[in-house]
Design a protein around this nucleic acid. Structure first.
Ligand SMILES: [Mn+2]
Ligand SMILES: [Mn+2]
Ligand SMILES: [Zn+2]
Ligand SMILES: [Zn+2]
Lengths: 142, 142
DNA sequence: AACATACATTATAATAATTCTAAACTATTG
DNA sequence: CAATAGTTTAGAATTATTATAATGTATGTT
């Protein structure tokens, strides 16, 4: 159980003011055993359930983006029209279950390193991500 | 130069009525040497430029989705909040240039086959796609 | 502790992408 | 050509996201 003062320090370290809302969001997002994936909507629900005080939707957006910029969160694109975020900020790949719309992390050991033989002139590779879409056997492809 | 009557047949084959609008969209999308990537907005512009008659935005959406369902187009997710489509319907990977927001196809020979050692119980792999984000050397990571 | 300041939060309005609706239109079949 | 099912259309509705501007808060300074 990480203490709030740790979050306060963590926020200070990257130059974010440890406001009440930011500390609360840290608790909700990072005060847990495992990393997880969420949408802004999920997060708003989680916050409402876990605390009595209201938080403005705009603040959730702002704070998520502030955390993303500071490297506390990663954004994952699977489905246009919906942003998924990930508290697992390490480079990793995903399974996406088309039946349940669930995102599942791939362990590093699940996939051999990708060998890219070409590159774009004058450009540097910033990330390499694999998305494996899965569905029930009896499911028609989306 | 594929003739329009070919598009009419092609549409009939998959059970889509060859309406004026669908045939025009086939021309704009498929009557060319190379495959390409586009957003709905791009497509609307291309249609307006290449022909005098108006087409309703809803029809562009409907028709793109009809084509997607029939396998004439693929949807690519890179950026939430924007749908990219691809006239290259084969399984392939992409570079995404963060500076220009351009999508670039990877040839099959550019990347070794991905070896996935794990799978999700009861689920079948529907697709495996790699997205390689690139940017100028001097660019700060998004 | 009170003050000044920059930064953050809030409610609400604005924007953008997409989908829905219901009326008008068109391709197809007989 | 008439009947029918499917399609297009303009515009309204919906959804996700971002902008605005007023109010509130954290922090360093007196
Ligand atoms: Mn973002
Ligand atoms: Mn789609
Ligand atoms: Zn993840
Ligand atoms: Zn492509």
């Amino acid at each position: 159980m990480t203490k709030n003062c740790n979050f306060i320090e963590k926020l200070r370290e990257v130059g974010l003011r440890p406001t009440k809302q930011r500390v609360k969001m840290c608790e909700v997002l990072f005060n847990r055993e495992k990393t997880f994936h969420f949408t802004i909507n999920d997060l708003v629900k989680m916050i409402s359930e876990k605390m009595s005080e209201k938080i403005s939707l705009a603040t959730v957006y702002n704070t998520v983006h502030a955390f993303e910029k500071k490297g506390y969160l990663k954004e994952i694109s699977i489905d246009s029209h919906k942003s998924y975020f990930d508290t697992n900020i390490s480079a990793h790949h995903h399974f996406f279950d088309e039946d349940t719309h669930e995102l599942i992390d791939c362990d590093e050991s699940d996939i051999d390193p990708v060998n890219i033989k070409k590159n774009i002139t004058g450009k540097k590779i910033k990330s390499v991500e694999i998305l494996i879409k899965v569905a029930s056997d009896n499911q028609t492809q989306k």
